[in-house]
């Protein structure tokens, strides 16, 4: 923790960065994102096992970018989001100062995207045992049962779009759901509108989602949206040998054509 405070103080003092995006104490036992702009604020930084949120989404927020050069405390998910964002030309190498927070509480500086990529191939990109259990349950269902399961979950949706707002990959200036000429997705939060929205969002995240779980964490109605996007990771991996958020210059599997692409999904 002292290392973190010392490092961020130095970065701000020598003007390497203008703001550091990290974790601070929130309401009661909650952790929240804080923006440290000068060395008098660095004491507000905390780092505990509860600091699991993926902060990468803030790198694209207009008012945050406007502050100046950004530094970020990035966990594994955030690093992967950053690689994916880089591959989609949303951030550039050298633009952001990256301090990586490892699960063991140590902090490592990453000088460039190449060193992030080198680190990412060493980590386990799998999911937690709890998630595995929930996925296994879903996969054991018949198609009809799964359909009922998701429709029941979507019934709770109020279309507050917290899932979209929390997702680092949902950065579109105008989301498909906001387009009204033509209107692809019904705006109403009724059965059809909720289903269309969540299926559209999941499909747009296929091959891009790094499974950070921010969508599900953000949902005030407790819809396990991460299970929906997670189930699209394996098909992309097996079909196109692609995993999101591993390389800054990756080519997106679903927007490129290779002559040897498998076509077994075409009915």
């Amino acid at each position: 923790m002292n290392d973190l405070i010392k490092k961020v103080t130095q970065l701000l003092d020598d003007k390497t960065i203008n703001v550091f995006i990290g974790y601070g104490q929130g309401t009661a036992s909650r952790i929240r994102t804080i923006f440290v702009k000068n060395s008098s604020q660095v004491e507000n930084l905390v780092y505990t096992s509860d600091c699991t949120a993926n902060l990468a989404g803030y790198l694209l927020k207009h008012e945050v970018k406007k502050i100046g050069k950004l530094g970020i405390l990035a966990n594994d998910s955030a690093l992967r989001s950053m690689m994916q964002l880089a591959s989609e030309f949303q951030i550039k190498d050298g633009e952001v100062y990256v301090l990586h927070a490892a699960k063991d509480g140590s902090f490592t500086e990453f000088a460039d995207f190449q060193s992030i990529e080198a680190y990412l191939v060493t980590i386990d990109t799998g999911i937690t045992s709890d998630e595995q259990e929930r996925i296994a349950k879903l996969e054991a269902m018949t198609v009809k049962e799964r359909w009922i399961f998701w429709n029941k979950e979507f019934e709770k949706c109020i279309k507050c779009y917290a899932c979209r707002a929390a997702c680092p990959m949902c950065y579109c200036h105008r989301c498909t759901t906001d387009v009204n000429q033509p209107q692809w997705i019904p705006v109403a939060s009724h059965e059809q509108g909720n289903l269309d929205y969540h299926l559209m969002r999941a499909m747009h995240l296929a091959g891009r989602c790094v499974n950070c779980g921010e969508c599900a964490n953000a949902c005030p109605m407790d819809i396990p949206l991460n299970l929906l996007t997670y189930q699209l990771i394996a098909p992309i991996r097996t079909t196109f040998d692609a995993t999101a958020g591993m390389k800054a210059d990756a080519v997106y599997a679903l927007s490129t054509f290779k002559p040897d692409d498998k076509e077994n999904f075409i009915i």
Partner: peptide, 22 residues
């Protein structure tokens, strides 16, 4: 600065009354 611009606050609020027509 940390607000991400979703509508969760307004939709759970007992007094928020803004609406849209579609």
């Amino acid at each position: 600065l940390r607000c991400i611009g979703c509508g969760a606050c307004a939709f759970v609020c007992p007094t928020c009354a803004c609406f849209d027509f579609q």
